[in-house]
Amino acid sequence: MNIFRLFGDLSHLAAIIILLLKIWKSRSCAGISGKSQILFAIVFTTRYLDLLTSFISLYNTSMKMIYIGCSYATVYLIYAKFRATYDGNHDSFRVEFLIVPVGGLAVLINHDFSLLEILWTFSIYLESVAILPQLFMISKTGEAETITTHYLFCQGLYRALYLINWIWRFYFEGFFDMIAIVAGVVQTILYCDFFYLYVTKVLKGKKLSLPA
């Protein structure tokens, strides 16, 4: 465990909790893509099935359970408790266009052709594109609430820190996982455009709104 990995995990945790608290405190999930949140719940579920088969550390186990628990809580708030505030008309990204190719790719390119390993690979590929419905929603409405942009920033920061973590691990441990690295690079690239808007607008106190 290096500091980049630790702060990456904490940034990921911060993103998840920011979103959960935002919805809970405002009693509204307006502007949040329920589809992205369902995809993240699928990502955590399929990736952390190894909770049942292998123990790595108390840290590892507890973080996995927190991620899974929070992601299901978020989906529950969006689709059940605060369903009336869910902006379904703008959340129109076709997720089957992500799930089907990602599933096919996981079957074709994986470390080991076993059920758990294919599901793990599926979760890695799916995570790299799971934010697309959220970004699509922002591009449709043309704006995002500031707290939503903080959520996205923490998600992107988590990815960037994981990239540094992999460089670190490659140099100091000789470890690399090509599937995670390629998917992680793709995922980080998806946030670049958003990072630019975040730095040039949100950090200067302006609301994130896209030119018409």
Binding site: D50, N60, H111, L116, Y162
Partner: peptide, 10 residues
């Protein structure tokens, strides 16, 4: 492609 079935990252 390094085979590594024990995944220690989140």
């Amino acid at each position: 492609w390094q085979r590594r079935v024990l995944h220690d990252e989140l």
